[in-house]
Design a protein around this nucleic acid. Structure first.
Ligand SMILES: NC(=O)c1ccc[n+]([C@@H]2O[C@H](COP(=O)([O-])OP(=O)(O)OC[C@H]3O[C@@H](n4cnc5c(N)ncnc54)[C@H](O)[C@@H]3O)[C@@H](O)[C@H]2O)c1
Ligand SMILES: NC(=O)c1ccc[n+]([C@@H]2O[C@H](COP(=O)([O-])OP(=O)(O)OC[C@H]3O[C@@H](n4cnc5c(N)ncnc54)[C@H](O)[C@@H]3O)[C@@H](O)[C@H]2O)c1
Lengths: 228, 228
DNA sequence: ACCGTTTTGTGCACACGTTCACAAACGCGG
DNA sequence: CCGCGTTTGTGAACGTGTGCACAAAACGGT
């Protein structure tokens, strides 16, 4: 082992690179699948193939959170699930509030994938009073005026914005003012927030445009292709 | 200009880096907003601020698609909109098929943001015969058995997968077999495709887990924070 | 107890992306 | 026509991420 010498590799405790953090959830999902199939150990090669990355990258990623895994054998599936969960902070539970219960917010509220990993939809809020009171997946829609009270009551730490673009920055400001430090934004706008707040965006339109670019490139140069 | 000398920077024509391509749609959206407000020219500083990036990065990104922009003045908004559109391949039109019209697929079908940028939802398909025939945003849901015929008929080049995870790889294989070379996947699985096919994934669960990681990090180390 | 096989963990080199800093270009006013 | 402030485009330094290749470690069979 020999942790505290030289200092090469990662910086300090918790110094996992952003690229690695983005892949850990993929490993976690694949590992959970293996665990449910009764697989006890996996090699980096098998796990990497299932996760769609190279074996070396996978090993380096995992090495950043400790030296689990046994040489000549592989990784213990259950143990690795636990370690990745811990590294990602999934041993704690997070309350989520979804703001904007339109087409998208409705789908999100009904999505089962939330609860499976320690995320609990604490509340749904909307500005449209016609929607207030509606029950979705067992949760009652409340009015956005109550946002501040709801956040305090449920200790919400993550806000999901599914309002029209015009309302997104306003909603975001209010979330931040209430102490929310993580925001997942579905509205097609660039949110501005204080440094300490993390924003991640999901933008369907951008994804399509990126695909369009490659589509065009493939059409123009129909010969030299190797990497995807 | 002097294009063909040395070879430093990008490789060949159309050699725009992946990171740049991912940002171009953001610039495009911001520029469109400026254009609608009647702004004629923007400086890199203004545009960068609105897009949430640094001015230098923005200029380098734009320089990859030509030397538009006038020193001492800035960029002509309308011209830049056209150039970015062209670089992304948005001067052509793309037909999209959405496979899986459940909660999420329903929201996607009703989403207005598709048509605004040259993407047309050519068809909705689902495996559930109870849903077939339903009208969503003027489009009739058809059965997935007709997928091959629909793709050929509409010259679909982009497939959107919004089925449960278990069906995603099957659907993807069928899309690819029909000649679809771009896939946008919402199901939480790693799709395997031939090299020439591009897959982009949108995974809500992963986004939340990344936020959870940073949330945890902020809770543990409540002092040294600078970048967001 | 030892050897051969398997697989991890990582040093190293390289490619890619970001940021800084500045010279070259442009418009304008005098 | 010239000089001055402004803003682009880009070379160069830096940081981050990726992939190779291999030594160290564990296991099992003899
Ligand atoms: N529907 C999709 O598939 C899709 C896909 C990608 C992105 N988006 C984006 O997601 C956002 C929502 O899309 P949608 O289709 O659900 O729109 P929608 O119009 O169906 O729903 C928006 C909801 O937000 C509510 N709302 C408006 N202002 C509000 C406020 N200040 N506070 C709280 N709630 C407010 C409205 O009452 C409405 O119920 C949009 O920004 C859209 O661009 C949607
Ligand atoms: N709902 C969300 O907010 C959300 C968020 C993130 C990710 N997702 C993912 O998106 C996918 C869809 O989610 P959903 O909530 O809409 O699920 P859903 O169960 O509501 O809808 C799935 C639809 O796909 C159809 N389907 C099943 N097999 C099919 C096949 N072989 N061919 C064509 N259609 C088929 C079903 O009939 C159903 O209508 C899931 O993989 C889910 O994990 C959903």
């Amino acid at each position: 082992m020999s942790v505290a010498l030289s200092g090469a590799g990662q910086r300090r405790r918790g110094g996992i690179s952003e690229a690695t953090v983005a892949r850990l959830p993929v490993y976690l999902r694949v590992l959970t699948g293996f665990a449910e199939s009764g697989v006890a150990t996996v090699s980096s090669e098998t796990l990497a193939a299932a996760a769609g990355v190279g074996p070396a990258k996978l090993r380096k990623d995992l090495s950043h959170l400790g030296s689990y895994g046994t040489r000549g054998v592989g990784y213990d599936v259950e143990f690795l699930v636990y370690q990745i969960s811990r590294a990602l902070g999934l041993t704690q539970h997070y309350s989520v509030v979804i703001v904007g219960v339109g087409n998208l917010g409705h789908a999100l509220a009904g999505y089962g994938g939330f609860g499976t990993r320690g995320f609990r939809v604490a509340a749904l809020v909307d500005a449209d009073r016609a929607r207030v009171g509606e029950q979705i997946a067992g949760i009652t829609v409340r009015h956005v005026d109550e946002l501040e009270a709801i956040i305090a009551e449920h200790e919400v730490s993550i806000g999901v914005i599914a309002t029209p673009a015009g309302a997104a920055q306003d909603v975001c400001d209010r979330l931040v003012a209430c102490g929310v430090t993580s925001v997942l934004n579905f509205a097609p706008v660039v949110l501005s927030v204080p440094d300490q707040v993390d924003v991640r965006k999901v933008d369907l339109s951008i994804e399509l445009q990126i695909l369009a670019f490659h589509e065009q490139r493939k059409a123009l140069d129909p010969g030299k292709e190797r990497s995807a």
